[in-house]
Simulated scan of single mutants.
Amino acid sequence: MTYTIDRYPCEDSPRLGAMTLHPTPESVPRARRWFRKFIAPYDPLCSVDDCTLMISELVTNAILYGRSDDEWVVRVEWYREGTSLRVEVHNPGFPASVQLRRPDADDAHGRGLFLVASIAESWHSGPSRFGGTVVSFLMSGAWPA
């Protein structure tokens, strides 16, 4: 299986890019690097550091909680929606299993979605059009009106 990057989205589409990743720990830093590289030409006004942190958390969750009997991938896509940036992370897990937790200070896990909810304008989870689950976040003010 190879990694896939969509560098040249269709002009009629609001999608700015996409990547397909193996469900392995090495994919988390790869997702950060590729997102930084491929969002840079669009020069977003929102914090790319915040976006890469949230992508890291969501890709990690997708790898940990995605399930399939067949070979599977994690798919990350990013879109321009007016002045906002929307990022989606897809995996073959079950949408009902996505839960925002409020971890205690001594909890070792459970902060990923809490970070996303704290940083992003909004977040959403539900069924993915690829099957499984999608978790997305929206960063408002990414581009001027």
Results as ranks from 00 to 15, higher is better:
M1F: 08
M1E: 10
T2L: 11
T4D: 13
I5K: 11
D6S: 11
D6V: 14
D6L: 15
Y8W: 07
P9E: 01
P9Q: 02
D12W: 00
S13K: 03
M19I: 14
T20K: 11
H22R: 13
P23E: 08
P23F: 09
V28C: 10
P29R: 09
P29Y: 06
R30H: 05
R32Y: 00
W34H: 11
F35M: 04
R36S: 14
R36E: 12
K37S: 08
P41C: 07
P44N: 04
L45R: 08
L45E: 10
S47F: 00
S47E: 07
V48G: 07
V48I: 09
D50W: 00
C51I: 11
C51M: 12
T52R: 00
M54S: 09
S56Y: 04
L58Q: 15
V59G: 15
T60I: 02
N61C: 05
I63A: 02
G66V: 03
E71I: 10
E71P: 02
V76H: 07
E77H: 13
Y79M: 11
R80K: 15
G82C: 02
S84Q: 04
L85I: 05
V87S: 09
V89L: 06
V89Y: 04
H90R: 05
N91Q: 09
G93H: 05
G93V: 03
P95Y: 06
A96E: 14
V98N: 10
Q99N: 07
L100C: 08
R101E: 12
P103I: 03
D104E: 14
A105K: 00
D107P: 00
A108M: 03
H109R: 13
G110M: 00
G110C: 00
G110N: 00
G110W: 00
G112I: 03
G112K: 04
L113T: 05
L113H: 05
L113Y: 03
F114G: 07
E121N: 15
E121V: 06
E121H: 15
H124Y: 11
H124Q: 12
S125G: 09
P127D: 09
P127N: 08
R129T: 08
F130G: 12
F130C: 11
V135G: 11
S136Y: 08
L138D: 14
A142M: 01
W143D: 11
W143K: 06
P144D: 12
P144V: 09
A145V: 03
A145C: 09
